[in-house]
């Protein structure tokens, strides 16, 4: 064994290292926590995270359920994809909606992006975590996405109220994670912390991971609004005066609630074309998410309040 090593020391590639690191993180969580859950948002990062979870525990199925916080405004294609993905992974799927918000008629149009997000995503998430008593929740966030994410730990501690205190984070050394929480407290675990957007796409290509077709260019009905292209996914979307949906060749860089997710014009209808297009892209990913635009530091504010 050591003789052959001396001749040619094999090295892991960048993606192999990232994959192994993510698997290590997932296993730590599964081994140390009583009741973990995986937040599943149906986007490309969630798809990669779910794929890694299958790898981490194979031949067992991942020993935790999936949780989707459904705002009722997701793209229709996302919901169909979600149900299939959970089934394929042999995992339980919990779908949670803030019923109080629905009752009060909270929509992106009536209450504005940030109130809506707070009630239908942040509050709904906290509600679900409390209801099921989860003590650890996996999220697919990456450090390259946004400035406050760049500082977050891989095991990120949350108080009983699901709050994050960026100034009081636990030091995190090597790959040794502090998993101790008291009753009611929890951690958010981010196995994709060290992946970049390009890594995600390359990995999807390499592993042939299924993704929602919205990522690929197709003719879709969109309207121009505040300088961005918004897809009219169903007839609940109120049109402003003079707005008329037109069919444009578009795709999405991120997926969320359709009224809050801007499309980009693109002819990239295959995965390799998307990755190729990304390489010359000059707009960062989250700019397609309207909720971050209110003000600089808005993500950090939301995270302190419990947003993922």
């Amino acid at each position: 064994m050591s003789a052959s090593l001396a001749i040619e020391a094999p090295e892991l590639t960048h993606l192999q290292r990232l994959e192994a690191e993510s698997i290590h993180i997932m296993r730590e969580v599964a081994a140390e926590f009583r009741n973990p859950v995986m937040l599943y948002s149906i986007g490309k990062d969630s798809s990669v995270m779910l794929h890694l979870a299958k790898k981490a525990f194979y031949p067992s199925p991942p020993p935790f359920p999936l949780l989707h916080v459904d705002t009722t405004w997701k793209f229709r294609e996302m919901i169909a994809f979600r149900d299939q993905a959970a089934k394929d992974a042999r995992m339980d799927l919990i779908v949670h909606t803030n019923q109080e918000g629905v009752k009060q008629g909270v929509t992106p149009f009536t209450h504005g992006a940030s109130v809506y997000t707070n009630i239908m995503k942040t509050d709904a998430l906290k509600e679900a975590l409390t209801k099921y008593g989860f003590d650890a929740a996996f999220g697919g966030a990456r450090r390259d996405e946004e400035k406050s994410r760049a500082k977050e730990r891989i095991f990120s501690f949350r108080t009983e109220n699901h709050g994050w205190d960026p100034k009081n984070q636990r030091p995190e050394l090597w790959n040794v994670y502090n998993a101790r929480v008291r009753k009611g407290e929890s951690i958010r675990a981010f196995p994709l912390s060290n992946w970049t957007e390009l890594d995600i796409w390359q990995y999807i290509l390499k592993e042939s991971i299924p993704i929602v077709p919205l990522y690929l260019a197709a003719k879709r009905p969109v309207v121009h609004r505040d300088g961005q292209l918004i897809m009219v996914d169903d007839d609940r979307m109120p049109l402003n005066e003079g707005e008329k949906p037109e069919m444009r060749l578009v795709r999405f860089r991120t997926l969320g609630c359709y009224p809050l997710t801007a499309a980009m014009e693109s002819p990239a209808a295959s995965l390799p074309e998307i990755v190729h297009e990304m390489l010359i892209a000059r707009t960062s990913e989250r700019s397609g998410r309207l909720i971050d635009h209110d003000e600089a530091g808005s993500m950090e504010k939301k995270k302190r309040e419990g947003y993922f």
């Binding site: 946004e146 400035k147 406050s148 500082k151 960026p166 100034k167 600089a296 530091g297 950090e300």
Partner: peptide, 15 residues
């Protein structure tokens, strides 16, 4: 990245 740091003009955590 963090707002508090911007205000103080120093880095307070690992990024």
């Amino acid at each position: 990245g963090l707002e508090a740091e911007r205000e103080q003009g120093i880095t307070i955590d690992v990024a």
